[in-house]
Every structure is written in C-alpha cells, then in structure tokens.
Write a protein that binds this DNA or RNA. Sequence first.
DNA 1: TCAAAAGTGTTGCTTGTACACCCATGT
DNA 2: ACATGGGTGTACAAGCAACACTTTTGA
Lengths: 245, 245
Amino acid sequence: MSEDVAPPRRDRIFVQVTVDLAILTVRDGSLQILLIRRGNEPYQDHLALPGGFIREGEGLRDAAHRELHEETGLDGTLLHLTQLGAYGDPERDPRGRIISVAFLAIAPHLPSPVPGSDAVGARWMPVESALADRTFLAFDHYEIATDAVERARTMLEQTMLAPVFCAPEFTMGELREVYEVVWGIPLDPRNFARKVKNTPDFVKETGHKRSPAIGRPAILYTAASPSDATLYPAMLRHAMREAAE
Amino acid sequence: MSEDVAPPRRDRIFVQVTVDLAILTVRDGSLQILLIRRGNEPYQDHLALPGGFIREGEGLRDAAHRELHEETGLDGTLLHLTQLGAYGDPERDPRGRIISVAFLAIAPHLPSPVPGSDAVGARWMPVESALADRTFLAFDHYEIATDAVERARTMLEQTMLAPVFCAPEFTMGELREVYEVVWGIPLDPRNFARKVKNTPDFVKETGHKRSPAIGRPAILYTAASPSDATLYPAMLRHAMREAAE
DNA sequence: TCAAAAGTGTTGCTTGTACACCCATGT
DNA sequence: ACATGGGTGTACAAGCAACACTTTTGA
C-alpha cells in the first residue's frame, strides 16, 4: 500500500470478487469433486465449481462457508476449509474483471444426492474425469481444481487431515482407503496401522466396533486432534515419490 | 459460480484490489523485511508492507512484479514470487472494501539503500522487531508478514529456494547462514555441506574461489535448479522441531 | 472353518546427528 | 603457526518397507 501520492483514477479499478469451492470427497474408491452445471452464460451447460459472489460486509471465509452450505447442505464448521489463493487473470471471466478466491473443502463420504438447496444439478465426479481435459470445466476451474487436489495430497502427507474425509467414526481400513485413493497408491495395512497408532494424538479408539458381513469386527476410531495439526514425522514420503515415476 | 438466477444487485458488490509484498532478505545475521513509511491516511506515518492497487488488465502476479520493481528497483524475474493468498476481512481497510492479494518475495542480500524509485522511505527491519507487536504494522500486515515468514521457513525446508537469498555466487557458509537465520537455529557445517552436495541438482561449483581476510579460500557455488524444485528428502525436519520447544 | 480385520516381529535400508579427525591456504 | 573454510569417516538412533506369522471374531 504505497499510494503515497493518490494514483490516477484509472489505477484504482473496481472489480467483482467470487469465491469458488473445490469440494473433495472419497467415494466408490476414487477421489471425487463436486461440480454444478451452469444454467447461464457464460459457459452455459458446462460443469463448474460451485461458488458465487461475495456480499457486502462478508469475509472471504464467511462467503465460502455460506456457499458450501448452500451447495452441500452441510454445516461448514464440520468441514475443513483452506484457502487456495486468488485467481485473477484479467481474461479468466468473459464478463469482465472478476477475481476469484478459491477454497478447498474436504467432505466426508456423503449420501449420493447432495441435499443442498442450490444444489440442483450438483454431482460428484471423479477428479480423474473432471481433469482429463483442460477445457472440460468452465473458466479457469481446471487450474483451481488441479491446485486443490495437489493441496489435498500434501495436506494428507503433513497434517492429521485424513479423518475429515471419513464419517465421525471410522475403521483403520477406511482411513487407509483415504490415503490410497487420494495418492493413487496401495499401502501396507500393517505398517499403516502401526504408523497411525504410534503417532500421538492422531486417532483414538471409541470403544465401539462394527461387524462386516463376515469376519472380525473392525475397531472404530475418531480423530484425536484438530485436523490441521501437523503430523511428524510426515506420512509416507517415500512411497509417493516412487509412484510419481 | 452458481449464479443460476441473477442475484439481486447488492450481492454483486464491487471492491478494490491491492497487492501487498512481503519482501524478505537475510542481512546482518537476521531475517529482515522491507517496510515503507506511509505518507497518507489511513495509518499515516505507520510502517507497512509495500504494495498498491492493481491496474486495468493487469494480472495479480504482474502487479506484484511491478510493485516489486518500483519498491526495490530489482527486476522481478530474478526474485522468487509466491502468492500467499487473499486477505479480505471487511474491516481490514478503513477506506472501504479493499481486498489484498499478498505475495512473498525472497531477495538476495541487497545494498542498504534500496535503489527503487518509489522506495524513498523504504527500509529493512528485522522481522523480530516488525512482528513484536501486532499493531506495529499498518492494516492487517502483521498477519500477512507472519504468514510470509512461516511460508519462507517451510519453503526453505522443502524446496531448493535458499540460493535465492544469496548473491549469484555464494559459499557454503553463506548458504548455511540463510538456514540458520531463517530458522533461528545453528546447524552443523559439516553435515550441512554433505547434505547439500549429496542432493542432486541443488548447487554446483563455479570453479571460482573467494579469499577471506585470513584462512583458506571459500569455494563458490551457484544454484543448479529452479528455486522451486522440491527438495527430497526435505532439509532438517528434526532440528527445527526440537528448537520449537 | 473360513475370510476379514487386527496385531507382532524381524530384517534391511536410508537418513539424520554428533563428533573426532584431516586437508588447504594465506597472513 | 594458526585461524578459517573445507572435507572424510564413523557410530548411533530413528524411521520406513517388505513380509512372515499370529490372533480375534462372527457367520
């Protein structure tokens, strides 16, 4: 803010600001993202990230929470919201200068039809499909979604975020599935469980169990920390690197 | 962008957007940040981060580069610019709704008077001093600067960013000083040098040497990678953790 | 008795840390 | 000779990957 001398009027342009949400979940063995079908121009009938304009006196995170609630029907306090950053290319929206602040939201495994009010036409789609083509999503949402997935991957690695993908109570297998799906690599169940349980304040047993169709009942766990607590040592740096080749 | 039905006019508010720069360097054995003294209200005579309003048709990163050049006189392509995110609290600027997109810039050890044109009144200050009091800096620049320092710390850990703090040619000792100053902990010179030289594409010898007042001449190195290349395994997770207690 | 989930143990490898010790150079 | 910057070796601990083996449980 070095406007020591009032700059010429043309330098103080006004723009509109939206928030866009990359809402990720793990469903049917794949990482999925919530998309809506646009009803208006521009990009009418294209798929896009949910989002909308910020309102008067409304903070960015508040706007994101409001949109999240409108799109998914979920109370945002249960979900993890991280700001990804601002996307402000002058050409990103044909309607004019519109800057978007993108947020990453991690959702637990929700029932298939998203029950939100605005959410007519909202659907989950595997990120693999949504990001197969750079122009499949409207605006610059390909960039935003790509950044979101990448951010989710590293957050999984470095924080105790994973339980946010799960229901309040989850089994070791469900927790492991989150990592396997988001990273796209298989993990050793035994070493995984050992690592998780040896990490202080990661998960704790609830005392409950859940019986599968056949087999030994699975122990149910809950998160024992705020989801953004840093995990040390980080999860699995090695296996991910190898898979990247 | 779920404006399926055109929202009422009051929901499509217009705001002004600034870019703010947290420009960090290592000087005199401490991590320092570039600050300007504000000449106008609000916060007249307070210290603040350099920055300014974005212009018509100008991308966010372009605006950051322009401001960086105006404030430091340096060509931004030499410096590392990372977006920290958008700061959009409705109350953050008393002039009205102004959203700021903050960038982190890493500067090499520059000569003391910053030679930029707008840079009259710009000065380096140890982050320790600048962040001693939450209200020392104007606006929400305390938050921005805090986030910037934290980001610099983790980037140092996980990428090959460190040489950007140094002159084009640097000694092992100078490179090590960057880590020691940014992290605030001493490092073992021998293990540090081993780690750096065993990491492929981190630094390479220039063939030049530099003789100190007395003692063996130091070997000069250059960066051998783009500065945002990820460093694996990461630098020194352990020592930093211990120092945090 | 069988399959699913969980738990234990072991080996080999990589990395980080601490520290003893050696080398090179110019005043 | 000596301080300064550089470099090697080595012993110890921590952590991870792979994998063999055992245990618990309910249909």
